[in-house]
Design a protein around this nucleic acid. Structure first.
Lengths: 337, 337
DNA sequence: TAAATTTTCGGAAACGATTGCACATAAAAT
DNA sequence: ATTTTATGTGCAATCGTTTCCGAAAATTTA
């Protein structure tokens, strides 16, 4: 079936394409009579204006690019759900890319996006490198971008994070209050923003409670689940075994569960754990996991709101260079009781 | 900064836009000398052809629309990851939509997509209705579409599912072998394809093992977690309590965990459970959950392969009207031991 | 050397929608 | 009755790319 175009409608109605276009856009300079006729036929034939013709002419795509480092992760799924809820209401579409925690892929994706394919970008950058030199392709382009969760420090735009420092602090204090003396901190990469902030909270908590600290308590893990488990096993086999764990990402808490399963160390009796996590079933784990969970949907909504405001209202200024902090919520469960 | 266009490159190089275009596309009718000059400048200025102009001209978008009923679900995330892996290699983009299990939203999304925005669609339809009348907007459009997991029966195209019948049968047999006599079947909606097939396997297993069956053993749940839990609690409070559970979707297995937690019924001692699920942490639940898990990534890869073949090779026939079945894998864990 | 190719490139149309401008016709004001 | 204004519509250019067609220039062949 031939695609239905404005030109086709115009022929059918004995009108000029321009008239049809204006009628469809409810222009004031078209009589209500012709408007109705046009609308009626358009509805009858289920006419949909060609998005690419429109994008080309209007120089905007009504599309937003989303880049996340990992798709199989509740947190990011929730963020995107939040974003979609608001962008949908504005007639915007979401192009979603998974960078697989890989800077090279991030770079490739970005170069695809800057060509005009999207009107804006929402991004959480990979853990490999937080400096963000690979983001410089964006610098001299006028494309709005907001970062969330894993943000680059030196890129002048709006960034959304949770109160990582405070949450890290409070999670640690919680463990201290439960009697933990040797709390280790699990981090994917010391380079990543969220890792750094959460770690700062952890360190400050230890300090303010006059607890000793050893460099080896910062356990840097990687992206390989198997290696992480093996590494953690060794940590727990040490004579001077830790009695507390603060995991800066969910993945590492899970690795800890598996590592502990291979030893005969009991949680929470011998070691307690608190983790940053957006798992919905933290309460079903053995034992249920104490979590610091981020308001993911809200983060998505907020990102989208910022962009919608910038894109749909005219005369809007560029995105401010600032960091917006949304509080996370702590839930105590068996793992730290 | 002004966008860099072919026309701009042409001016800079004192060439015609047509020549530049051909050079960039490595046409044989351009001398290697000019090709090099053009390529060099394009690279230097980081030229990206305007995707919308190209789409308009070529009448294809190099974009695929993906519609899923739920985003916060490992299965769908994995499927999309699989798809992206292959579409990326072909220079295709993914527009992802969440229908929220709502037929109306599905309809809205479809009408947005048929206007030429995407070259093909991959879809798993909502559980509300499996008849698929709302898909008729697609009927007279020439847009290729493939369904997976939750498929409409009467839509003539290729559909991908797992061996739902067989897996349902084998899961049930497993429970029977463990000594279960009263096995209930948890389903979201009796209308949904996967529910039906899995149920058929369940029923046949009971029959072939000469076990009694009662209509009430088919427990139809909804999308509200709270109601499901309340409902299941009642099921387990009956005098004639079930001693086995086959959950046709992960969500209902989790609801069962929570319902059991409110009673003092022990799993697997008093009731055993097997569930369809793609959870990565089934082994960390209390007790670890026996799962029938679908090869989600493979499904995504297969969907994408079908479409890429159809779209990138010329002279390809329309998508065959057939159902492709990929086997799922059963993993026994504590919940049914 | 002239003719026939082949190679290399430019001009212009096309994709479908939007919009500035011009031009009718009708209504209102003078 | 004539000018002004408002209203409704059409023409044509534009967005950036690709491609058909034709025409020079370079090369080969007769």
């Amino acid at each position: 079936m031939a695609e239905i175009t404005i030109k086709y409608l115009a022929e059918k109605l004995n009108l000029a394409p321009s008239t049809v276009s204006r009628a469809l856009n409810d222009s004031h300079e078209i009589s209500s009579g012709t408007k109705e006729k046009v609308m009626a036929l358009a509805k009858e034939l289920n006419f949909q204006p060609n998005p690419y013709a429109r994008s080309l002419r209007e120089q905007k795509s009504k599309t937003i690019g989303v880049i996340i480092p990992e798709r199989i992760n509740n947190f990011f799924s929730q963020v995107i759900d939040g974003m979609e809820a608001v962008t949908k209401a504005h007639g915007y579409h979401l192009l979603v890319y998974n960078s697989n925690e890989d800077i090279e892929q991030e770079k490739t994706i970005l170069s695809l996006l800057v060509g005009g394919r999207v009107d804006a970008i929402v991004m959480s950058i990979s853990g490999q490198n937080q400096k963000g030199e690979h983001l410089k392709v964006l610098k001299n382009r006028a494309i709005p971008i907001v970062f969330f969760d894993r943000i680059p420090y030196d890129f002048p735009t709006t960034k959304l994070i949770t109160n990582d420092y405070q949450a890290g602090y409070e999670g640690t204090v919680h463990l201290i209050n439960k009697g933990c003396k040797k709390i280790i901190f699990l981090v994917l990469s010391k380079e990543v923003s969220i890792g750094k902030e959460r770690m700062r909270g952890y360190l400050d908590a230890l300090k303010s409670h006059n607890l000793p600290f050893d460099e080896s308590w910062i356990v840097a893990c990687g992206h390989s689940e198997i290696e992480n488990i093996a590494h953690l096993e060794k940590v727990f086999y040490k004579i001077d075994r830790p009695d507390g764990v603060l995991a800066s990402v969910e993945k590492l808490a899970l690795a800890t569960y598996r590592a502990l399963a291979k030893t005969n160390i009991k949680m929470p009796e011998q070691v307690r754990m608190v983790s940053f996590s957006n798992m919905k079933i933290a309460d079903l784990l053995c034992p249920p996991l104490s979590t610091i969970s981020q308001p993911a949907i809200e983060i998505g909504v907020e990102c989208a709101n910022l962009l919608m405001k910038r894109l749909t209202k005219k005369g809007q200024p560029d995105l401010e260079d600032k960091i917006v902090t949304i509080p996370s919520v702590f839930t105590e469960r068996e793992s730290s009781r």
